[in-house]
């Protein structure tokens, strides 16, 4: 992978559109989105349902391709990559956290966290050590051998976060990570994400519709009708004064 010139943003969307369906039934979910995200940012993506925020998230996560426009990830044109190349990009540079946790059932926390390492071809002892370390980071040391059914929602989301960060990704993409959790657990998860963003220098991009949760981010991007309506940095004013 060619590394982009110094100072270039980690992620850059240029005039991205995404259309679902064809002809009369066509629906334009994104209508020309420009967005730049730098290494180490903590971005919250907000907006009403149907505003295109989830579509944008899927594009950023290389799970989907734009209809038109350019997506540069560290200077690489993602829109030109094929399925397998995008899978490799996900494997090496991205981590995912979903609203519904999406852990493998009947599979211990340890094995769930080891899964991405397995696809990277790591040896067994490396997998075990890294998975333990990741579970330790999310505060689940001692829960390695519990299956999702034996864990609370908050704990399951922690396992999912451990699985996302076990490969030391550049970017952690979280799609409504607190959507299925109560308020107390939600704040715990947000604190964990903030800490990972601060301590590990992982870029965090998170979709949420709860202002409480968005408040943990240092930048909030609002989507309305498939366009970026506002792009705020709440902390920036304090920093300048």
């Amino acid at each position: 992978m060619a590394v982009a010139e110094l100072g270039a943003p980690l992620i850059e969307l240029r005039a991205i559109t995404k259309t679902y369906g064809e002809g009369q039934a066509a629906f334009q979910a994104l209508r020309g989105v420009d967005l730049q995200i730098a290494q180490g940012e903590f971005v919250a993506v907000m907006g009403p349902s149907g505003s295109g925020k989830s579509t944008a998230m899927n594009l950023l996560g290389c799970l989907d391709t734009p209809t038109t426009g350019e997506y540069l990830f560290r200077g690489i044109h993602v829109e030109q990559l094929d399925r397998n190349q995008r899978a490799l990009l996900r494997r090496n540079c991205l981590g995912f956290v979903f609203q519904g946790f999406n852990l493998l059932a009947r599979t211990s926390a340890q094995e769930n966290v080891e899964l991405p390492l397995l696809y990277r071809g790591e040896a067994a002892d490396v997998r075990h050590a890294q998975a333990r370390a990741a579970l330790d980071k999310v505060g689940l040391a001692g829960w390695e051998h519990h299956t999702p059914a034996e864990l609370s929602g908050g704990q399951q989301q922690r396992v999912a976060i451990a699985r996302a960060i076990v490969t030391n990704p550049l970017v952690l993409l979280a799609d409504e990570p607190t959507g299925n959790l109560d308020s107390k657990r939600s704040h715990e998860i947000m604190e964990l994400l903030s800490r990972l963003n601060g301590e590990q220098d992982i870029t965090v991009i998170m979709v949420t519709h709860e202002p409480d949760m968005a408040a943990y981010a240092r930048r909030i991007v609002h989507f309305v009708d498939g366009l970026v309506a506002s792009d705020e940095r709440p902390g920036a004013t304090e920093a300048c004064c």
């Binding site: 399925r83 899978a87 996900r90 494997r91 999406n102 696809y119």
Partner: peptide
């Protein structure tokens, strides 16, 4: 879907 999302190749 989970396996694909975390970076498994189709062939794998």
């Amino acid at each position: 879907g989970i396996r694909l999302a975390i970076g498994a190749l189709e062939n794998e």
